[in-house]
Amino acid sequence: MSGAEPGLLERLHGIREAGDVPLVGDARWPKAQWDATVAAAAAAELPDGTAWATLTSGSSGAPRIVLRSAESWSDSFAAVSGFLDAGSGDTVALPAPPASSLTLFSLAHSLSGGPRPVLRPTPEADVLHGTPQALRAVLDAGSHPRLRAALIGGSHLDPALRRRAEAAGIRVSAYYGAAELSFVACDEGEGLRPFPGVELEIRDGELWVRSPYVASGYAGAPGPLRRDGAWATVGDRAALDDGRLRLLGRADEAILSASATIVPEEVEAVLRSIPGVRDAIVFGLPREPVGALVSALLELEGDAPVDVRPHAAAQLAPAHRPRRWFAGQIPRTASGKPARAEAVRQVLAGEVQSLVIR
Rank of each mutant, 00 (worst) to 15 (best):
A167I: 06
L147A: 12
G177H: 01
S173D: 07
A179Y: 11
Y176D: 10
L207F: 07
L200F: 02
P196Y: 01
A150K: 00
G177C: 05
F183S: 03
L200C: 10
P196S: 11
V209C: 04
E199S: 15
A168F: 07
G191W: 10
G153E: 02
P145R: 12
L181P: 02
V172R: 01
A185N: 06
E199G: 09
D158F: 00
A150V: 02
R162D: 07
R146A: 12
V138S: 15
G191A: 11
A149L: 00
R162V: 07
G191Y: 11
H144V: 14
E201G: 11
F195C: 09
A167K: 15
A174F: 01
H156T: 13
V172Y: 00
G189Y: 10
A141Q: 14
A160T: 06
L200G: 12
E180N: 03
Y176H: 11
P159F: 13
V198C: 05
D187V: 11
L157S: 03
S155M: 03
V184H: 07
G189D: 04
C186I: 12
P159C: 08
R203K: 12
R210C: 10
G177Q: 01
D187G: 09
R162T: 09
R162L: 07
R146E: 05
W208P: 13
P196C: 09
I152S: 05
R193S: 13
E166D: 06
L200Y: 00
L207G: 09
A174C: 10
G154W: 00
R193C: 10
S155H: 02
R162Y: 02
D204M: 07
S182R: 00
A185G: 05
A174E: 10
I152M: 00
R171C: 05
H144F: 15
H156I: 11
G189A: 09
L151C: 03
E201S: 15
V138M: 15
P196E: 08
G189M: 11
E166A: 06
R210P: 00
A165V: 09
C186G: 08
R162A: 10
L181N: 03
Y175E: 04
G169H: 07
V209N: 00
E201W: 02
S155T: 05
R203Q: 14
P196N: 09
E166G: 08
Y175Q: 06
E201I: 13
V138N: 13
L161K: 06
A167D: 15
S155K: 03
A160H: 13
I202D: 09
V184P: 12
E166N: 06
E180T: 04
V198H: 01
G142D: 10
P194L: 04
A149M: 04
L157D: 05
R164P: 12
H156D: 12
F183T: 05
L207Y: 08
G154C: 01
R171P: 01
P196W: 03
Y175P: 01
V209K: 00
L151N: 01
R164S: 11
R148W: 04
F183L: 07
S173C: 11
G189N: 03
D204F: 04
E199Y: 03
A178F: 06
